[in-house]
Simulated scan of single mutants.
Amino acid sequence: MKSSIGTAVTFLPPGTPGEVCSSWNRAALAANVASRAAQLGLGADLTRSQMAGLAQLVRDGAGKPRPLSAKTQSAIRAALRPPLTPESDPSQVAAAVFAALPDTPLPVTGNDGRRYYLVAVPAA
């Protein structure tokens, strides 16, 4: 079953700069890995091996396993931190949003109690 939210090639418009595409891909992968990790009860202390295995799983086993960069590992760990909630202080929300840009998913809990990962969609 396809579990990915896609890559920059399928999501962003043609001509998007490479560094923007890399940031999008990192955030999308980190959100997918963090989601799977959370489903398994894993937190930000998961091992590099666990992250790599989950990344391979969300990639549907496509290709040979690849090591994750330090930036991607950091984005995954950040996505597994306690989520912001509707009760979070607005200054805390603003700080978290701007610290996450451009390549770290932001975990939030919605009014419905579900956990979401906000991934920035670049406008240009």
Rank of each mutant, 00 (worst) to 15 (best):
3 S>G: 12
4 S>D: 15
5 I>F: 14
7 T>H: 05
9 V>A: 14
14 P>C: 08
15 G>H: 10
16 T>Y: 05
18 G>N: 11
18 G>H: 11
19 E>L: 11
19 E>N: 13
19 E>M: 09
20 V>A: 13
20 V>L: 13
20 V>M: 11
21 C>G: 11
21 C>F: 02
22 S>F: 04
23 S>R: 12
24 W>G: 00
25 N>W: 04
26 R>A: 03
26 R>T: 03
27 A>I: 08
28 A>K: 01
28 A>D: 01
28 A>F: 04
32 N>V: 02
33 V>I: 06
33 V>M: 05
35 S>N: 12
35 S>F: 09
39 Q>E: 14
39 Q>T: 03
41 G>W: 05
42 L>R: 10
43 G>D: 15
44 A>E: 13
46 L>Y: 00
47 T>S: 15
51 M>Y: 03
52 A>E: 15
52 A>W: 07
52 A>Q: 15
54 L>F: 13
54 L>A: 08
57 L>A: 12
59 R>E: 07
60 D>C: 12
60 D>P: 05
61 G>W: 09
61 G>K: 11
62 A>D: 12
63 G>A: 08
63 G>C: 09
69 S>F: 15
70 A>T: 13
75 A>H: 00
77 R>G: 01
78 A>K: 08
78 A>P: 00
79 A>M: 04
80 L>V: 04
81 R>T: 14
83 P>R: 06
83 P>F: 05
84 L>Q: 09
85 T>H: 07
85 T>L: 12
87 E>K: 14
88 S>I: 06
96 A>F: 07
96 A>Y: 02
96 A>P: 02
97 V>E: 12
98 F>M: 08
98 F>E: 12
100 A>H: 00
102 P>I: 03
104 T>K: 04
105 P>R: 05
110 G>L: 10
112 D>L: 04
113 G>Q: 13
113 G>M: 07
115 R>K: 14
118 L>P: 00
120 A>M: 09
121 V>F: 05
124 A>N: 12
